[in-house]
Amino acid sequence: MALFYNNQIELLKGIAIFQDLLEEDLHFIASHMRQITFKAGDILFQEGDPGEEMFVVIKGGVSVFIKDQEEQELVLTEVREGNYFGEMSIIEKSCRSATCRATEDTLLLALHADSFSKIIEVIPEAASSIMNRMLSIIVKRLMRTGAFITQMVQYGEESRKRAITDPATGLFNRRYLEESFEGLVAKAIGERQSLTFVMFDLDRFSTLNARYGQEFCDNLIVKASYVFREVFTKDDILIRYGGDEFIFIFPDTDKGKAQIKCDSLCEAMRNMKVEGHDELRLTCSMGFATLPEDATSPEELKDKADKALYMAKEKGRDRAMPWNG
Rank of each mutant, 00 (worst) to 15 (best):
A2P: 06
I9T: 01
E10Q: 11
L12K: 04
K13I: 04
G14Q: 15
Q19L: 00
L22M: 06
E23I: 02
H32W: 00
R34I: 14
G41T: 04
D42F: 04
I43E: 04
L44S: 00
P50K: 04
G51H: 09
E53Y: 09
M54H: 10
V57H: 01
G60Q: 04
V62R: 02
V62W: 01
V64C: 06
Q69R: 15
Y84G: 00
F85Q: 06
M88Y: 10
I91Q: 10
S97P: 09
S97F: 08
T99W: 09
C100P: 01
A102R: 02
E104I: 10
L107C: 08
A110L: 07
A113E: 00
A113F: 02
N132A: 07
I137W: 00
T145I: 03
G146H: 07
G146D: 11
A147W: 03
T150F: 08
M152I: 13
M152L: 03
Y155L: 14
S159H: 07
A163F: 08
I164K: 04
D166R: 05
D166Q: 05
F172P: 08
R175E: 11
Y176E: 10
F181V: 08
F181D: 11
K187V: 01
A188L: 08
D203I: 03
F205E: 02
T207V: 14
Y212E: 03
G213I: 11
Q214N: 14
C217W: 11
C217I: 02
D218N: 15
A224K: 00
S225R: 10
Y226K: 12
F228E: 07
D236H: 10
L238N: 01
R240Y: 05
Y241M: 09
Y241W: 14
G243H: 02
F246S: 03
F250S: 01
P251R: 06
D254M: 07
K257N: 12
Q259L: 15
I260E: 15
C262Q: 05
L265K: 00
L265E: 05
L265D: 02
M269I: 15
M269S: 09
R270V: 11
D278S: 12
E279S: 15
E279G: 11
L280N: 09
L280F: 02
L282F: 08
L282Q: 04
C284S: 11
S285N: 05
A289H: 03
P292F: 11
P298N: 12
K302G: 01
D303H: 07
A308P: 05
K313I: 03
K315M: 10
G316Y: 02
R317W: 01
G325L: 08
G325P: 02
